[in-house]
């Protein structure tokens, strides 16, 4: 496969430099942009595999950049946020970002996120919409039958647990916010449903994860949401 092309959108030169050095050292191609205007232009002209987007840009809010890109493309976007508040990450995820990184982050973390996203890209390319069976390591979901299997044994899930699991599976690799999940599962997103979500997620994990302390299928992102990760390969 070709070397993946990454678009780095970051206004701070040392950080841009750091990321590009790390990418070059790990066999990625990259282009960079220092502001939102350039970012959108580069995204349209080069159609990169992944966008690394800093949320604090001088000319336009990062969330608006996501909306602009999402209006014509589904290219994966990983946001980089320096703000300590979770709000902007949630806004970015709800606007269509796939993942986030918080400054300060280590190069290891950055590379891990890129790998996860690339794997998702590769896996979901063949007719992703028509996929009737989802497999992720020992987990298999038969959407048509409405059943989930772990090591070929059927999991006895309540309707809500199944809904949660299939929602996460369909968006495997993407961080889904609490708000998004409760909207999808209950149709509303009141506070009460977020509490219910945690209960169902805990019971789902008990059935799903061999060791609930170090979950391998579903990650918790405290204050933000949940994500299913690929465990195969």
């Amino acid at each position: 496969m070709n070397k993946p092309l990454i678009l780095i959108v970051e206004d701070d030169p040392p950080i841009r430099n750091l990321i590009s050095v790390a990418l070059e050292a790990h066999d990625y191609r990259y282009i960079s942009a220092a502001n939102a205007g350039n970012a959108i232009m580069e995204a349209t002209s080069h159609n990169p595999d992944i966008v690394l987007l800093d949320l604090g840009l001088p000319d336009l809010d990062g969330v608006d950049v996501i909306r602009k890109i999402r209006s014509w493309s589904n290219m994966p976007i990983i946001v980089i946020s320096a703000r300590s508040d979770d709000r902007d990450k949630i806004d970015a995820l709800d606007a269509g970002a796939d993942d986030y990184l918080t400054k300060p982050f280590s190069v290891d973390e950055l590379l891990a996120r890129l790998r996860v996203t690339l794997r998702r890209l590769n896996q979901s390319q063949p007719d992703n919409a028509e996929q009737m069976v989802f497999t992720n390591g020992a987990l298999r979901i038969d959407y048509a039958a409405g059943c989930a299997y772990l090591n070929d044994e059927e999991l006895h899930l309540t309707p809500i647990e199944y809904k949660l699991l299939s929602l996460l599976a369909r968006n495997c690799g993407k961080v889904l916010t609490h708000n998004y999940i409760t909207q999808q599962v209950w149709g509303t997103s009141w506070e009460n449903n977020v509490a219910s979500l945690r209960v169902f997620m805990a019971t789902l994990r008990k059935k799903l994860e061999p060791d609930p302390d170090s979950p391998s299928f579903i990650q918790t992102h405290v204050g933000i949401g949940y994500r299913m990760v690929r465990t195969d390969s």
């Binding site: 509490a195 945690r198 204050g223």
Partner: peptide
Amino acid sequence: NITTELMDD
């Protein structure tokens, strides 16, 4: 930013 949280999380 108060929400209901699972202590284990």
